[in-house]
Structures are given as structure tokens and as C-alpha cells.
Amino acid sequence: MLLYAAIILMMLGLYGILTQRNIIKIIISLNILEIGLNIFIISIGFVNGGVAPIFTGQNNLGSIGFVDPLPQALVLTAIVIGVGTTALGLALAKKIYAKYGTFEIDDMKGAE
């Protein structure tokens, strides 16, 4: 179920990037796209009935199935990279506001 929700989230994010004409809204759509992708990756690694991939005293016997730990490691990296992109985008948004006085792309004069 969460798999399908993740796919719909990604589609919504793409829709936002394509239709919105506001800088902040575009960055928000990018974030939604990233969250959707993260949930998608985690749900790829999910095994029904599995437990979290952490070795403890109870479950290192090999009888219990773990969920796949590799997608989780990928998502950790992807989250951090996503924050970097978002921060850079917001810094650019501030610059754009200082230059044109608005966040709406359509209202900016002199911009191509």
C-alpha cells in the first residue's frame, strides 16, 4: 500500500514542478518528489514479516528474516543529499528575491 502511495507522491511532486510558477513551491515539490522516492526505496527493501536489520541478543540466530538493509543505507545518503540541494535552492531563492522582488517567475521583469 505504501509502495503505491510513494509512486503517487512522486507523480504529485513532478506535477508540482511542472505546473507551479513560484520558486518556493517548486522547491517544495522537489522535496515531495524526494520523500516519495525515499519511501519507494524503503518499500522495495521491505520483506513481509521481517524485523529491523539490527543484531541484538534475541534475533541473531538466523531464524528471523531481516528486511533488506542496503536500501536503508541508500536512503540515508539520499536524505542528506536532498537537504543539501534544498538548502542551495533556498539560498538561490533568496538571491532571486533580492534581485527581482518576487518569488513568482511570471512577474519577474528582465528575466528570460
Partner: peptide, 8 residues
């Protein structure tokens, strides 16, 4: 900055 934002 707008062009850079589009690139981003």
C-alpha cells in the same frame, strides 16, 4: 540566479 535555479 534564475538560470542557476532552473539548472538546479
Amino acid at each position: 540566479p534564475l538560470a542557476t535555479f532552473n539548472y538546479l
